[in-house]
């Protein structure tokens, strides 16, 4: 699946389709207490809810 959508030619993707970038393993929180409270071991998925729209 990853080979088809490497993201460079995103303007040629069919419209009205949703695309989720592929997650790469960059490591995990080594402080398990922090991961446990954050609800994820992946720093890139630890997006605090700020009551506004998307958080990068």
């Amino acid at each position: 699946m990853r080979e088809h959508f490497d993201g460079k030619n995103i303007d040629r993707f069919p419209i009205a389709m949703a695309y989720v970038p592929w997650q790469e393993f960059e490591g995990m929180y080594d402080d398990l207490e922090k991961a446990y409270c954050a609800g994820t071991i992946f720093p890139e998925l630890d997006k605090p809810f700020t009551g506004r729209r998307c958080v990068s």
């Binding site: 997650q23 393993f25 995990m28 398990l32 991961a35 446990y36 994820t40 071991i41 992946f42």
Partner: peptide
Amino acid sequence: GMADFVLIELALYLDTHPHD
């Protein structure tokens, strides 16, 4: 419980990245 949580998280990742 925390170790179990980590294993579940890793399992979810490995489900879609079995060769990582």
